[in-house]
């Protein structure tokens, strides 16, 4: 590489001799030619082929009806009309909402735990952090299988433990109502590790002198947490909330493995994505499934957009 200014993209940081710095920098912004495209190309290609094109196809298929073994015919808005009239839709939407609501609690809980883990002088902090992070690296399906045994109504550890303090447990994953809560608690537990890691990193970026100054002014630790910590980690909290809500709206694998398709309570526990899966695969109505998928996409986009609008009100720019 030379210091020549004519080679496109060469030596962005190397000032050309005999030229003033400002115009040079300006040129650097506009004069890369096709190079940036070349670097972005592979990624853009991947996204286009594996994300954008399937979305376009799904949108197209949502206006079609499929034969048992493929082959589709155009049916217009029929799938969407059917979706709006689907007696299972309301229940599935509500279930998804409840699940997401519970799992989002993992963000404040994660913040408290992260703050506790970050207290100076805590012994074995690394050990705790590892323990909290373990669920996140474990396979959700495997974890769900273990929790299924923990939740077992007759022989599960949970009911045994509850029995010790005189509470009679129930069939957590096989009782209508409880099965959704049981799934949500597991989802929350699984997400805690990730939340704690992100929030720990954010907490460590808070300048210590802010706390010292606050302490000098007589602020209690609680007050410091409220007035310094929370505003300073606002962006991380926002990020986690957005990610958690999106993941929550996509609830499927935990339901599928923890509750199971043959479980009679599944009728009352289905999520939106479960409806999509059921339509697309066991019922083999791929057109209808595509319509549900598009509906989920729109709902997720709307919820996320609302979150972005709201963030201006409460997330402080640091």
């Amino acid at each position: 590489m030379t210091a020549s200014t004519t080679a496109p993209g060469a030596g962005i940081a190397i000032p050309a001799p005999g030229r003033p710095a400002r115009p040079r920098r300006k040129k650097a912004h506009t004069g890369h030619g096709a190079w940036p495209l070349l670097f972005v190309g592979p990624l853009a290609f991947g996204i286009a082929v594996f994300y954008l094109w399937p979305i376009v196809r799904t949108a197209y298929f949502s206006f079609t009806e499929w034969g048992v073994f493929g082959g589709s015919t155009w049916v217009g808005l029929e799938n969407y009309q059917r979706l709006l009239a689907d007696p299972e839709l309301g229940r599935a939407a509500l279930n998804t909402l409840i699940y997401t609501g519970v799992v989002v609690l993992g963000v404040p809980i994660g913040l408290v735990l992260a703050a506790l883990l970050n207290r100076p002088g805590l012994r074995g902090a690394t050990l705790y952090r590892t323990l909290f992070f373990l669920p996140y690296v474990a396979m959700p399906v495997a974890v769900a299988q273990v929790w299924k045994i923990i939740y077992n109504g007759d022989y599960g550890v949970l009911n045994w433990a509850l029995g010790l303090i005189g509470i009679e447990g129930t069939y957590w994953v096989s009782t209508p109502g409880w099965s959704l809560i049981a799934t949500a608690v597991l989802g929350l537990w699984l997400s805690l590790g990730f939340n704690i890691i992100i929030l720990s990193a954010a907490l460590r970026n808070v300048p210590r002198d802010l706390y010292e100054a606050a302490a000098l002014d007589g602020a209690s630790p609680m007050r410091q947490f409220r007035s310094i910590t929370i505003p300073m980690v606002g962006r991380s909290v926002f990020f986690l909330t957005v990610v958690t809500v999106i993941a929550g709206l996509q609830l499927f694998d935990l339901l599928y493995t923890l509750v199971g398709t043959a479980n009679p309570v599944m009728r009352d526990t289905k999520s939106l994505v479960y409806l999509f899966w059921e339509a697309s695969f066991p019922d083999n109505e791929k057109g209808y499934g595509a319509a549900i998928a598009i509906a989920i996409l729109v709902i997720t986009a709307c919820v996320t957009a609302v979150q972005f609008l709201l963030q201006r009100k409460w997330v402080h720019d640091v």
Binding site: N152, D154, Y171, S174, T175, G260, A262, P264
Partner: peptide, 8 residues
């Protein structure tokens, strides 16, 4: 019951 059957 069905719940017990589903659990175990």
């Amino acid at each position: 019951s069905l719940a017990q059957d589903a659990d175990t």
